[in-house]
């Protein structure tokens, strides 16, 4: 099973990797328990920064699509197929959309929403305090 990344694509490289590994799991091109290449090997083969591959692996691990077993390496998670269906970024969008709709219904302006969002994201104290 091969992964192909396009450095000209508008999609970030780590996202291309995450998507393709999830697609490989869905298409059963990789099975639970299968070993994956090390971060260094994949980064070298794709001629990209190892931090990019590490980011893709950490997102896949968070979604329980892969699991790291210490020095033994990285493997496909036993529940990878079910877990690779979960699209957290779509869920985040849906949640945000619902929240923004509620706020707008309460006549909160766009800039108030934006400022509050940035403050919460960066753990800053409330500007109204």
């Amino acid at each position: 099973m091969q992964v192909i990344v396009d450095t000209n694509s508008s999609m970030p490289l780590f996202a291309q990797l995450v998507e393709q590994i999830k697609q490989a799991v869905q298409a059963e091109l990789v099975a639970p328990g299968d070993a994956l290449p090390s971060i260094r090997q994949l980064a070298t083969d794709l001629r990209m920064n190892s931090k990019t591959v590490a980011k893709a692996y950490s997102l896949l691990e968070r979604d329980s699509v892969i699991q790291t077993k210490g020095y033994r390496g990285t493997f496909i998670h036993p529940d990878a197929k079910a877990n690779s269906n979960v699209d957290l970024s779509s869920w985040v969008r849906a949640q945000l959309k619902q929240t923004i709709q509620t706020l707008k219904a309460a006549n909160v302006t766009d800039s108030e929403i934006r400022i509050a969002f940035v403050e919460i994201m960066h753990n800053r104290p409330n500007s109204g305090d």
Binding site: M1, V5, T7, A35, P37, Q41, D45
Partner: peptide, 11 residues
């Protein structure tokens, strides 16, 4: 080439 390929198997 802007596309790079790699195999998903460890060596």
């Amino acid at each position: 080439s802007t596309t790079k390929k790699a195999d998903l198997r460890p060596r």
